[in-house]
């Protein structure tokens, strides 16, 4: 079971969280109308092996969205910080 270090609540089981996808690429601006930009954001992923940044929300805790470092090869968890403190990319 992954244990996620929530900056607010401390280290918790991943079952308290929901996964929110890739946090390593920027979301297009809200008023971006280019279909290609949104297509790439929503559908195209790098799927890296190794260190990766992901969104996780502590739904059963502080409700905060985090950006978590996770190694996809070893499934080891690194640091977590609040998503609101900086854009994902």
């Amino acid at each position: 079971m992954l244990r996620i270090p929530c900056p607010h609540c401390g280290e918790r089981d991943y079952t308290e969280f929901r996964y929110g996808g890739d946090a390593s690429k920027p979301r297009p601006a809200h008023d971006e109308r280019d279909v290609r930009a949104w297509h790439d954001h929503v559908f195209v992923f790098a799927n890296p092996r190794g260190p990766h940044r992901e969104y996780w929300q502590h739904v059963q805790g502080c409700r905060q969205w985090l950006i978590l470092e996770r190694d996809t090869a070893t499934n080891t968890v690194g640091a977590a910080r609040l998503a609101r403190d900086g854009a994902g990319a």
Binding site: R18, G20, A23, R27, H30, Y55, Q57, V59, R63, Q64, W65, L82, A83, R84, A87, G88
Partner: peptide, 11 residues
């Protein structure tokens, strides 16, 4: 969860 995501990550 979606509203929180938008407020915390996008806006």
């Amino acid at each position: 969860s979606w509203l929180e995501f938008l407020l915390q990550t996008a806006w």
